[in-house]
Design a protein around this nucleic acid. Structure first.
Length: 298
DNA sequence: AAGGACACCAACCGCCCATGT
DNA sequence: GACATGGGCGGTTGGTGTCCT
């Protein structure tokens, strides 16, 4: 059964918003807050579709938006998040305060794609352009990193227990029914070992399992650093690339961020048993307990 | 100066999911 | 369980400005 249109299209304006429309929308949301977008246009005296109002507000009128050019740091963050999350623009935007998914999407398509292409990297796969599409092991190296391409695997990151459980069956279902997926909660991440050779995304995100000695060392290091303090790691370390040439914080300890089936996350090597407000900076998320569901939150 | 090509980005469209009835 | 509705997301389009010939 087809869906009813979100609004009466015959009586709505389309195209660019006028200053007056903007003012009306801003005034209304200031007075009443964000609420029912469907009824908002009528209440605000706007001849616009509710969706259009929402988009205008979120992408352009929101007071907390950061306008202006993207910084190099934002560029790199977007690239790395995209390599992990794919075209999940809203998730990526969630990690860039003041930026919207639409803005990032546009920026990706106009700037970053080209930037990666000039680096000889396929923006879709984050693999070298001249690399054959097969998944057979190779020793190709890129111009920007010296990470070895070992193999390609598909891993499911689950954002919830049910999704985690569903994830296993999801693959089966996917074969039978293309549309029957839980993409909102389950992100299929094709992660190439080339990108993150040490990053195991199978239900946990970690460098290779730290040895007990490493874990002990890490715990001691953490203790030394004050325990409850926010631990700042460079991006390379956040991705499990400790001691790589990209590492700028020269940390030597290993931290495993484990996401289990019970919606809980813990940090191995740090203080998995007592989180006691320990914060880690994973992908720039200073979070006491890494909960992937938060990635969905804008 | 003109006009075609290109780049940028705001806005739209269609689909999906969650929730309520 | 079936259906209706609202909200959200990713892909795409079209208008506008800039660059190039």
């Amino acid at each position: 059964m087809g869906r009813s249109p979100c609004c009466e299209k015959a009586h709505t304006n389309k195209g660019a918003w006028t200053k007056e429309e903007d003012d009306r929308l801003i005034a209304y949301i200031r007075a009443h807050g964000e609420g029912c977008w469907r009824s908002l246009p009528k209440a605000a005296g706007l001849l616009r579709c509710g969706k259009s109002c929402r988009l205008r507000w979120i992408n352009y009128l929101r007071p907390d938006l950061k306008r202006g050019n993207f910084t190099d740091e934002e560029d790199e963050l977007i690239i790395k998040l995209h390599s992990l999350l794919g075209n999940k623009w809203s998730l990526i935007a969630g990690r860039l305060p003041g930026r919207t998914d639409n803005e990032i999407k546009n920026y990706w398509n106009t700037h970053i794609r080209r930037k990666l292409l000039t680096r000889g990297i396929d923006p879709a796969t984050h693999r070298p352009l001249n690399e054959p599409p097969s998944t057979t092991p190779s020793t190709t190296t890129t111009s920007t990193t010296n990470l070895q391409d070992v193999t390609t695997t598909t891993t499911t990151i689950s954002f919830s227990a049910s999704a985690a459980a569903a994830a296993s069956t999801d693959q089966k279902d996917h074969n039978n029914n293309n549309n029957n997926n839980n993409n909102k909660q389950v992100v299929q991440v094709k992660h190439e070992m080339m990108r993150c050779p040490d990053l195991n995304l199978d239900l946990k995100i970690s460098p290779p399992m730290a040895t007990q000695q490493q874990q002990k060392q890490s715990a001691e290091t953490l203790k030394k650093n004050g325990g409850g303090m926010i631990r700042e790691l460079c991006f390379a370390c956040n991705l499990g690339l400790q001691n790589s040439k990209d590492c700028s914080c020269s940390c030597s300890s290993s931290f495993n961020i484990v996401v289990d089936h019970n919606n809980t996350s813990s940090i191995n090597g740090g203080s998995s048993s007592n989180n006691n407000n320990t914060c880690y900076d994973f992908l720039g998320l200073k979070t006491s307990v890494l909960d992937y569901r938060s990635l969905e939150m804008k």
